[in-house]
């Protein structure tokens, strides 16, 4: 696989996206989509919405303690792909996923696998901050409570505090934990949602354009937070902003019309894109 992918040089990269979609699927991906010790690994993933194919044969690995960013123009399927990773697509009528997605070697689309504990292991942060209409404390405590992670109030208090601390929100809200989470500013709400996700001790965190609804200052804080979280979690982030991808991620994957066009070290992708489409996107010719 590896060699095949590398064999495709810049000339084949000039193929149009539709030709790429023609059938060779993942083999068309430029760059090495595998990693040494993957946390999650996806092979030949197709996603269909009814009769419309949204993802076409994508193969991609996510490593331990890395931030993988997914970029690409609107409608390229990067959010759809992200939602496959913890089976959030299950909630959408008529959505069908084929191929294999493995978490620590176990196929998450296996019939016997239960999405509930899966989602406890693979958390997700959404584009628009979506705190529950509850107090800040209850927002963070919600996950531990439903999963029964703590045995008593003291433990729960400690878990809420540590989660809020890790999300960098503790100092700002420690005096008003009983106030509604919806009363916070946009950036604070998003960090609250991150704290909420951390509180159930996931192994992988998926982030779907987490900063698109935030102002630049709040964005900077969240980006810093993502960088810190890398120490303990694997993170996959979908972003619209190439600068953000460059700032926070170690590896970058470029999607186009449902195809994974190119994947590689973030530095390489931005300084030396090997595929024409990647280059066009990065240099701002479309997107």
């Amino acid at each position: 696989m590896n060699t095949m992918a590398e064999a495709i040089d810049k000339t084949t990269g000039a193929m149009s996206a539709s030709e790429l979609a023609g059938g060779i699927h993942s083999r068309a991906t430029v760059g090495d989509f595998t990693v040494a010790d993957p946390r999650m690994s996806c092979r030949d993933v197709d996603v269909w919405y009814g009769s419309k194919q949204a993802i076409k044969g994508v193969s991609l690995d996510i490593a331990q303690n890395e931030v993988l960013s997914m970029i690409g123009p609107s409608g390229c399927g990067k959010s759809t792909f992200l939602r496959c990773l913890n089976r959030m697509n299950d909630t959408i009528d008529g959505c069908r996923v084929t191929g294999s997605i493995r978490l620590d070697g176990q196929d998450i689309y296996d019939r016997s696998l239960d999405p509930v504990p899966l989602r406890a292991r693979v958390g997700m942060v959404f584009q628009k901050p979506n705190p529950f209409p509850k107090s800040i404390y209850e927002n963070v405590a919600y996950g531990p409570r439903i999963h029964g992670l703590t045995n008593n109030r003291t433990e729960l208090d400690a878990l809420v505090e540590s989660s809020l601390r890790k999300a960098g929100l503790w100092e700002e809200v420690k005096d008003r934990l009983d106030q509604p989470g919806t009363g916070l500013s946009g950036g604070q709400q998003q960090r609250l949602c991150i704290a909420r996700t951390i509180a159930v001790s996931p192994e992988v965190i998926l982030m779907d354009e987490p900063c698109s609804a935030l102002d630049p200052i709040a964005t900077a804080i969240v980006e810093e937070l993502i960088d810190e979280l890398r120490a303990n979690y694997s993170i996959a982030i979908v972003t619209h902003s190439m600068q953000q991808a460059a700032r926070v991620s170690q590896r970058t994957a470029y999607f186009h019309l449902g195809d994974l066009i190119e994947v590689g070290e973030t530095n390489d992708i931005f300084t030396n894109p090997r595929h024409k489409l990647t280059e066009d996107y990065i240099t701002g010719r479309f997107g």
Partner: peptide, 27 residues
Amino acid sequence: VPQSMRDGSYALGATQSETIRRVIVPA
């Protein structure tokens, strides 16, 4: 009640009834 509330709850690993009783109905 916006879908994002449901998504937020499911993404934390809540079951459907937990989502309904603890998020949707309070909302």
